[in-house]
Design a protein around this nucleic acid. Structure first.
Lengths: 219, 219
DNA sequence: CTTGTTCGGGAACGCTGTTCGCGAACAACG
DNA sequence: CGTTGTTCGCGAACAGCGTTCCCGAACAAG
């Protein structure tokens, strides 16, 4: 029934044996491990080994592995550089998306976390605040602005995920089946599409996001 | 190095001991289990127990748990009812999204699979073919149409996921932290937004998707 | 020095995906 | 009918997982 998110459970008083590590240290170790070997490698035991300690010790800093994943997401979100918003809103939002994509490409495990869990930590909250600030002069109602924030994150993560998976095996598999589906003959439009164009066209990230944002917010 | 996807690995010849079950039966059992207890409950042992057999037996029908998840996704995609496309493209695509959302709400484990893995099985391929058929008369190039297909699926899944998580604990946690962030005072726009509007406004699915599609494809 | 409190972490529990290998079941062939 | 080839069912085992228990150690305060 602990409805309190990770970020609010803070360090106890200065009494008792002092902790040898900090929550930030644990988070950093988990991020380093994920960057090196992927999200699946982030187990409590592996993270603990990274720190030269035992798995059970981590539970002094984190309530569960899921909490640790939330901390990782939010910590990366600290990498946004958010200047004071000025000028028209579209370039402002595009800059946010551009930075988001870069962070996600640098941390290939991030898109999965962003897409499947929606926890907003301190830095995520700052990002939302910045987005609302960019849209401060826009006439859309609050609901649509929040919706825009969610769509931006989702689309950026999905885009980054595609880019990351694009070169590896996942796309080959799909390609293999699509090729089979084409030769079967019952998918004329698909056949026409895939023979008339490169299989994986260079995705135009900013153009696509821009169109979506204009669709949502007008102008 | 098996680049062949699940759907192409077919039943062997009629030689040897006949199988007691079928791949479809295994898939159906996994779906039933996921519907009842969620995706986390879909372990090889649990699915096997559902069928009254041993866990190792499943590997006669499926190469891995991931394969089974792909089969589950595609099997649900068989639930689309795709009439021959006619009329303008926007209502045609909206109907696809509407059906997708309904399927995902009926199978709460689907959004996660759609968002994180992009495998296209036979029924997914049919859906793509249908989408391209609806857009047959549209002047956009092939790349943008494929992109539109991906965005439709992603957005629908993300929307459904939010609806499914909306009432449960996940949103409470977020709300708890956001409330804290507001009282801290450093997020004026956020504070204004969350006090001037209901915390979780009724999401207007079709309106949002419609705006995004028009943004991507024009008109 | 004692007391209160916290931290570190080995050990254990129940679970997971997957592999191995053996016995059983069947089709085809002689 | 018997033999052979092949597939299937699946118990047992392996390595790994998240998490909890619990006890000894380490410190602050009195």
């Amino acid at each position: 029934m602990e409805a309190v998110p990770v970020w609010l459970r803070e360090r106890r008083t200065g009494v008792g044996r002092p902790a040898e590590r900090s929550r930030a240290e644990v988070t950093a170790a988990a991020i380093a491990l994920a960057d090196r070997e992927g999200l699946a490698a982030v187990s409590m035991r592996r993270v603990a080994a990274e720190l030269g300690t035992g798995a059970a010790s981590l539970y002094r800093y984190v309530d569960s592995r899921d909490d640790l994943l939330d901390l990782m997401s939010d910590e990366v979100a600290a990498g946004y550089e958010l200047p004071a918003p000025e000028g028209p809103w579209l370039p402002g939002l595009l800059e946010v998306c551009r930075q988001g994509r870069e962070l996600m490409l640098r941390h290939g495990w991030l898109p999965e976390l962003v897409l499947t869990r929606s926890a907003l930590g301190p830095h995520g909250t700052d990002l939302l605040e910045h987005t609302l600030a960019v849209l401060a002069g826009h006439p859309a109602d609050v609901g649509r602005k929040l919706e825009t924030f969610a769509v931006m994150n989702t689309l950026t993560a999905a885009f980054a995920l595609n880019e990351l998976n694009g070169d590896s095996g996942a796309c080959r598999r799909q390609g293999a089946y699509l090729a089979h589906a084409i030769t079967a003959g019952r998918h004329p439009h698909l056949a026409a599409a895939l023979t008339s164009a490169p299989l994986v066209p260079a995705p135009r990230f900013e153009d696509t996001v821009s169109r979506v944002l204009v669709g949502l917010l007008g102008q």
